[in-house]
Simulated scan of single mutants.
Amino acid sequence: MITETENSSVIRSLLMEWVVHPDQSSDPGQEPIGYIRPSKRLRIIEGSGAIFALVVVPSLLILLPGVRSDHLLALIGSTALIESGAPVVGVALGLPPAVVLVLVCSVALGLILLIYTLLDTLDAESPRVSHLLVWVRQRYTRSKTLQTYGIYGLVPGMVILGVWICPPIAWLVGWERRRAVLLMMIGFTIAAAGTLAVATGLVRILPAYLSW
């Protein structure tokens, strides 16, 4: 009978792999220096998730009545450029607020997963990147405070730094991936929802104010 702990270990072994420092000698008495790298299987899963979020979800939203494909494409491009500020564009295009929020969050998630996939692939193919990860993570683990609480900085970080900066930072220091993605999406959703609320309010208030 396989216990839950054993089952988790099996799943982890299928999705992650231990990478030894490229320059480490084969001395059996030497403590191994390295880090955990997502396996090719996990990279495929994350890449598929990115495609689903960036392609499939927008394609489904196009099927909704009153939603134009060119407006969705404009909002996708705006999300990639101005990130959590993109709901302003969606509201200006006349898209329903719910559609705007779902689309920008889906695009943000897709970009995060895509960045992780590309960085993991670069790590797997480049010894220089492996050197860099070992160097950074050895120094990161020296700070217990940063190691324990640093990941929570991703929530405000998504508001300040955005989608193109936070995932590489989280990847570089090796924060637990599922929790990092969750925290980044929480930060992005809060920022996007706030922007959407302000933009929707202005659209409702400005016509009445100007007519007055």
Rank of each mutant, 00 (worst) to 15 (best):
P32K: 15
E31V: 12
G34F: 11
I62M: 00
I82K: 06
Y35I: 15
A53D: 11
R41M: 14
R43E: 07
R43A: 05
L73N: 14
P65H: 04
S78K: 07
L72C: 09
S78A: 15
E31L: 14
P58W: 01
R43M: 15
I76D: 06
I51A: 04
A74E: 12
A53R: 08
A74V: 01
L81I: 13
P65V: 01
I44T: 12
S69W: 07
V55I: 14
S78T: 11
S69L: 09
S39A: 11
G66E: 01
L73W: 13
I33K: 15
L42R: 09
R68T: 01
P28F: 12
H71D: 09
E31G: 07
S39R: 01
E31A: 12
I44P: 05
S48H: 07
K40P: 05
I36W: 06
R68V: 00
L73F: 13
A74R: 14
G47Y: 05
D27Y: 08
L75G: 05
R43F: 03
S59A: 14
L63K: 03
T79Q: 08
I82E: 08
L61S: 04
D27E: 15
I51H: 04
I36N: 14
V67F: 05
S48N: 06
G66Q: 03
L61D: 06
